[in-house]
């Protein structure tokens, strides 16, 4: 600790660089968490809507209803009439009332809403079910949230991959920074090391303080990055304001999970330790 304090400017600088590197990793992980959360929310609404042709015959409708109900994996089925669909729209978007009035007639088709079982929703079985019913006469269109869920999930994976990629590069840079800071510290304490060797200090005794310094810098850097990330997450929505409406949810970053935080700190500590070790093996010949 004394040694860290003695070269505080240099050490603080390197801890800040490490913190910024880990902050970028943190932001992407947070974004990924957010998309994952949205995907899981969408997945909770496990509904397939089969829109019916306006000119459908009663026989065709009955066949469709029968087919939907008989499908394995369907928990239950709701029929939404054209009037009900219109009422839902009016309730959800009262500001668009004028457009509807101008249209003069009800533009919404009737539909069957099939609520799927969770295991079916995320499996390929659901696609087969939909294709089978879509082929029946009288089905005009199918709306299935799963595509959105999948899009969200792949976006989340993309954010995480970018996080790993950028993070990897920046963490490597941090590794070299720590390695160089320890090298400078070794040079700065050359006399002390020399004297320690002469008075019979073991290699471990001489190396340990440097290893602890690397470890502390790593932990300090990651702790600082977690604090910065927290501030960023709290300030970001305030900065953007409420004007984004629906998009607000995309921007509302979520903080890292406990396991992610612990992983970040452990990873950073490990990087500090390795950076220090690599420097000692090159510059501290005992």
């Amino acid at each position: 600790m004394n040694n860290l304090w003695q070269y505080r400017v240099r050490n603080l600088f390197s801890a800040t660089i490490i913190a910024l590197s880990f902050l970028i990793v943190g932001v992407f992980f947070s974004l990924s968490n957010n998309l994952q959360f949205l995907a899981s929310q969408l997945a909770e609404n496990m509904v397939v809507a089969f829109f019916l042709n306006p000119g459908i015959s009663a026989r065709e409708q009955a066949r469709i209803e029968e087919a939907v109900k008989a499908s394995p994996g369907v928990a239950h089925v709701n029929f939404v009439s054209r009037e009900e669909a219109l009422a839902r729209f009016q309730k959800s978007f009262p500001e668009l009332e004028d457009i509807l009035k101008n249209l003069g007639s009800n533009p919404f088709p009737a539909s069957y809403e099939a609520v799927l079982q969770k295991k079916v929703f995320l499996s390929e079985e659901a696609l087969g079910l939909i294709e089978g019913i879509k082929a029946l006469p009288g089905v005009e269109d199918v709306q299935f949230n799963r595509d959105w869920v999948k899009k969200m999930q792949s976006l989340s994976r993309l954010a995480r991959a970018i996080g790993f990629f950028l993070g990897g590069i920046l963490i490597l840079a941090s590794f070299f920074i720590i390695s160089n800071v320890i090298r400078l510290n070794v040079f700065a304490r050359k006399n002390e090391i020399e004297i320690l060797r002469l008075v019979g200090a073991t290699n471990t005794f001489i190396r340990l303080p440097f290893l602890l310094e690397g470890l502390t810098l790593g932990v300090l850097g990651s702790a600082l990055s977690l604090a910065l990330l927290y501030i960023l997450i709290k300030l970001f929505p305030l900065y953007l304001g409420q004007s984004l409406g629906v998009l607000q949810e995309f921007i509302n970053l979520r903080y890292l999970s406990l396991s992610q935080c612990i992983g970040l700190v452990i990873g950073s500590a490990l990087m500090g330790l390795l950076g220090s070790l690599s420097s000692l093996s090159r510059f501290l010949k005992i």
Binding site: N191, I195, R197, L198, G200, A201, T202, N203
Partner: peptide, 24 residues
């Protein structure tokens, strides 16, 4: 071996012309 030199050094005291003190 090199990693055991400390054992020898503990049996000796060494003084140099330039003192080699830690001034801080």
């Amino acid at each position: 071996p090199d990693h055991k030199i400390w054992k020898l050094r503990r049996s000796m005291g060494i003084v140099f012309q330039d003192f080699r003190l830690l001034f801080h």
